[in-house]
Design a protein around this nucleic acid. Structure first.
Lengths: 153, 153
DNA sequence: ATTGAAAACGAAGCCCT
DNA sequence: AGGGCTTCGTTTTCAAT
């Protein structure tokens, strides 16, 4: 994905995935058909991997978020923590990281009580120690990955 | 948002925001118009805060992600780090957290060299110390906030 | 570009509370 | 009455020629 028009298109669609082809065609300066073809290509080549509606965590009953770093109890054991934890729906993201811990999770729950239960579940499901950092306030998240090529005109 | 149909609708649309009203109407068991009305309401009441296409970080030139914890150098200074850092596009999320650090950022860049520059920019823009945890591999992220009410019937 | 199909939108009427 | 659902007709958007 090096074409500047593709980059622009990806930036536009990542901000507003429900825009019509006509709207996108205005913004990138191509015909709707051309935009459509490029979009399909971006999807099929895996540049666009999916679409998502962003929900207000409080409104859907998940006001509490936290980062949980996890470290295997026994470094000798085979380590498939990500796979073991994958069924737990409260886990929104799972990365392996460089640093003190082996993995970093991002989780959302409804209450401190639920967080306690979740941490406990993670510990005994994956045989790990945990270090939890509670989110007090989210200033912003889900910001677009690509900058909009500055809007001249 | 306590209505079970709204919950179902929010779950469906968060997974597949480009579904048509007709498709959604099948899944929630209402007419397309009713679905449309409820969707508009979910949007206007702020339950649905936006839509996003998910891009492959590698494909768009941001293969390197990291968590950056930041701590103000001088606890006495007024602390508006989130506002100061907001213009930096590489920062995808900014949370205040309980724990050693004051804030947790999630960032994406193209290279270690860029990460170095970013950390430096963050430090001197917000007058903070930083602790960077590099992401080695992402197993999953962007997982839906709401479980799909199990498909009975 | 054009055209047929499909989706979205808005209006009017119905049912249930 | 009021709110929400359905159905229907119109307009806009989509997708393939």
């Amino acid at each position: 994905m090096d074409d500047p028009v593709d980059a622009r298109l990806a930036a536009e669609v990542s901000r507003d995935p429900r825009a019509t082809l006509a709207q996108l065609s205005e913004r990138v300066g191509l015909s709707a058909s051309a935009v459509q073809a490029r979009l399909r290509k971006l999807e099929s080549t895996g540049v666009i991997t999916g679409y998502q509606a962003i929900l207000d965590p409080e409104a859907v009953g998940k006001p509490l978020a936290a980062f949980i770093e996890i470290t295997p109890l026994d470094p000798r054991q085979p380590d498939d923590a990500p796979a073991l934890l994958e069924p737990i729906a409260a886990i929104e993201a799972c990365h392996s990281v460089a640093g003190d811990a082996a993995y970093m999770l991002f989780v959302r729950v409804g209450s401190p009580r639920e967080l306690e239960a979740l941490v406990s579940e993670i510990r005994h499901t994956a045989s790990v120690n945990t270090r939890t950092t509670v989110v007090l306030q989210t200033f912003y998240e889900h910001r677009p990955m690509l900058p909009l090529p500055d809007a001249g005109e």
